[in-house]
Design a protein around this nucleic acid. Structure first.
Lengths: 231, 231
DNA sequence: GTCTATAACGAGATAGAC
DNA sequence: GTCTATCTCGTTATAGAC
């Protein structure tokens, strides 16, 4: 009986994966707004009602795709972080940023799903939050390490932003100075501004050597969070 | 005869505007991917084929909406720029950035149309470029004025990026130092990263006092382009 | 000449009966 | 699960009103 259950569970996992693969293919062709359970079913030779055994609604399928995308991006970023030389924080920072860029260029439609326009009528549940936070956690960790070693540069902070910055530090990066927490959140958004502009074509006919441009920009972002180049 | 032509032209302008208004309403409800000529015609009490007198295809309607959105954003930014005190370049910079943010929050669907995920199957023609460049031109102008007055701070530039930076300067901002041109393009993308994260909900449950946060971030962006606070 | 209305096409989605 | 009848879509051809 346990083997039967095991086989059943295995089959279920396989079908679930096949559904998500087909849905991702459709995402690339028609976009998330037009993702339709029927088309997915057709591609798999199933009938649409059968899909509801695996995903109770179109929105649940979307949520699964979103979590998968965040996790795939997070894994790529974490692998790059682990492979970067531990001694140089700016290197680790740029390695993470470059991994984000490379992943986004390799998976533009999944990138659009998580960082592009919201899908009309869909609202992401809280379930997506942990996966969505993975890249941010990496960046926080790098700055925290440097701060722990006493190597964080001083950053300006206006009186206007101090309360918000302290709240951000307490919520997201306990132990970090408020100005570093605020700079981190800004750098996080700006990183995805750079990546999004390239993936979505805003750099067409503007930036040519995008890799060099990106590396330079994210190195400056590292500096804006208090990381300093090893001299 | 000239009055007849005038009346005809006026009617044509009015109908064109009504079509675009209805299309914008549909954009807000269903998203750009599902924009349908028939639904627009239905809302206006017209028959779908009549729309083809005004827009030769659905893609042409989309293009018109995109250009309108860029122009609306550009006008808002230019008005804010004109109203800002001329003597303080950082003030002018932040005024432009804040106008972009305010416009985007007031027109989230049009913002998604121009800076969000690309519409599947649609590729924007070159016609959109001048309207799309308006905000960028403003930012370039601010930095150029400061440079003309000899007040631009020195900026770092790696050897790796120098050729690209010089090409960027020659193409987009003749007369500016290469490092300032590269920094400007990066700041341009990063600005829309900040705005996009807020408009698309990535700052939900993260940033609370978004106005203060934004002002602080774009002031730092000004510094990254060589603008210095009047002390 | 400028417009709107009718009708139709081929393709695809959708709902429901079976 | 299957089949069918009925929708929607973009687009074109055509005919007639002003």
């Amino acid at each position: 009986m346990s083997t039967a259950q095991g086989a059943r569970a295995r089959a279920r996992t396989e079908v679930t994966a096949a559904i998500k693969d087909a849905a991702r293919r459709q995402l690339a062709q028609e976009g998330a707004a037009k993702l339709s359970l029927r088309a997915v079913a057709r591609e798999l030779g199933m009938v649409s009602s059968a899909l509801y055994r695996y995903f109770p609604s179109r929105d649940d399928l979307l949520t699964a795709l979103i979590i998968d995308a965040y996790d795939s991006l997070g894994e790529a970023a974490e692998a790059a972080h682990a492979a970067a030389p531990g001694g140089d924080p700016v290197r680790r920072w740029t390695a993470v940023c470059e991994a984000v860029r490379v992943w986004a260029l390799a998976h533009p439609h999944e990138y659009a799903l998580i960082y592009g326009s919201p899908v009309p009528g869909y609202s992401a549940p809280q379930t997506t939050v942990p996966a969505a936070a993975r890249v941010g956690r990496l960046l926080i960790g790098i700055v925290r390490d440097v701060h722990g070693a006493g190597g964080l540069a001083e950053l300006p902070l206006t009186a206007e932003l101090r309360p918000e910055a302290e709240r951000l530090a307490a919520d997201l990066a306990p132990g970090l100075p408020a100005e570093a927490a605020a700079a981190l959140v800004a750098a996080w958004a700006e990183l995805f501004g750079l990546v999004g502009f390239e993936v979505f074509g805003q750099f067409n006919r503007v930036v040519e050597d995008r890799e060099a441009f990106f590396r330079h920009a994210v190195t400056r972002l590292a500096g804006s969070c208090g990381l300093t180049l090893r001299s």
